[in-house]
Design a protein around this nucleic acid. Sequence first.
RNA 1: GGGCACGUAGCUCAGUCCGGAAAGAGCGUCGGACUUCUAAUCCGACGGUCGUGGGUUCAAAUCCCAUCGUGCCCGCCA
Length: 593
Amino acid sequence: MFLALRAEVESAIAEALSTLEFPTDDLGIEEPPEDVESVLASSVAFRLAGEAGAPPPQVAGQLADEIDVDALTYVSDVQTQGPYLNFLPSDAYLGETLETATDDTYGALEDRGEDVVVEHTSANPTGPVHVGRARNPIIGDAVATLLDYAGYDVDRHYYVNDAGRQMAVFTWAYETFDEADLESEPERDRPEYDLVRYYRKGNAFLENGPEDEVAEAEAEIESIMQGLEAGDDEAYERVSEVVDQVLGGMKECLARLPAEFDEFVKETKFMRNGDTDELVSRLKELDEAVYEEDAWQLELEDHGIDKNLVFLRADGTSLYPTRDLAHHEWKFDNYDRAVTVLGEDHKLQAKQLRTTLELLGNETEPLRQVLYSYVNLPEGKMSTRRGTGVDLDDLLDEAIDRARDEVETRLDDRIRDDDLDEEDIERIAHQVGIGAVRYDIVSKQPTKAITFEWDQALDFEAQSAPYVQYVHARCCGILEEADVDPEGDLEALDLDAADADLLETPEERDLLETIARFPSVVDEAADDLEPHQVATYTREFADRFNGFYRECPVLADEVDPEVREARLALVAASKHTVANALSILGVDAPRSM
RNA sequence: GGGCACGUAGCUCAGUCCGGAAAGAGCGUCGGACUUCUAAUCCGACGGUCGUGGGUUCAAAUCCCAUCGUGCCCGCCA
């Protein structure tokens, strides 16, 4: 409803301005501070003062007089406060909000008829997913869901780096060493924890092993890479043996978040189907192409990039960026838009990719890259190869354990007699524990660096998931108490009969106005590819709901039956709003906790 | 050395893209509220040269320039 109100206000101001022969290029629309009653405001009068030859407050007055409020649906009044114009919501605005928000798809925007691929995580299949990378699936999944809500048709892709040198190293190590050669037991009973030991062993060997044996190993690694480049089935199958096992384990880890994918796209796909060869010949034709020191490269200084992009090694094999170019042209062929979520350490590569795609004649406008900074440990960087870092599995386990402790200690002083059984406790521990981890990450601007600390990541107080989840549980509690199934179809409540006019307290109106803004929050967050805006909204929403909860009893005996119906509708609308906002963030909304 | 990002309360962060109403939360500290729809909640107090210095503007946390601090990148790795 907010979007409709905004549109109405915009045209009203523009009309008033042009009638008074003022420029209409900047309407000065803004959201007023909290202590102001209006839902939308304009500071346009400031800018017009010079032109009008009158002080801003006077100009604001002229504009307010010019606007015909009776012609507006969602605005009940235009008031001036000094130089500001304030637009107050009408009963229709609040009434329609209450009605539309009881629909369980509230917040989902109209279908845009556009296909978008969101590529995220794409971690190399070398070992367990660690916390340094955990921002990627969490942000990526939220971006994908956000775009889905915003009306796009979304596919989630994981791009599998199965053709790089490190996979050749891994394959060689896996085939060469025996279980007996390895120093340690797997940390977990899952393939990636088992196999990563070969990878680490292999890397250590290449660094410190006897010279002649290392040379022999290098020859083997080289032959694997040549085999892949030639599209050789045998090489592909040898590498796949490792890749598929490790990736299988990583999928299980990611599924715990959960982060699910529609497709795992292997980079070897673009070698085996000839796209990479074809791309290499096109790159060679570019004016920027040079053959230096036996390798083909692109000179990109003229495009603001100091570093040459090598696209064909001296030994004739392609590199990651070469294949990624083919990958992206494939995306352009199959989707209207492409979003990639990647770490800031890949920023230069991202710029090279975009520039080169353009040189190849692609329109790169549809490609957007979301960058996040790495999560570091207090003692430094996390690395799969070196085995430093905290595994995501461990973080999730710890989060669930702490959440379970929390549930159990709270069990004793529960007021509600809903008798949580073991299954409930486990369910809540999962929802709260994993929700807290996701929320902690998704609620911050991705560009800010994070230093990982257990207590901070797993703080259930703060402005955390449980705070918002609790609001959802409260909504469900009230609905259940009123014999309404929160999971069921709330429209069956006959809430249409509920009258928003009966919601008269400031807390009720604030809450309803906050609910009204949800679709516009989705719209803007999707435009900016910033799910943290939704997280910020959930916090504001929870504050408002708690204010309402404090001041406005719904089911108490002294509440007038009609007011009760209206408030129940407000609770139902709140339930959908918070459930859907949390769902965008990938955080479960518990029915009780 | 060069490029990019970040710097807001003791701590963790919104707000910065698109300049406007006396800078907002949470944690921590202190003081209050459970016979009442769930106290993982709420109410109050304390706490800020928005890194620093200039500039633009009627108006700057927000835009521009400089500077300091931190992080990332500058491989025929990915």
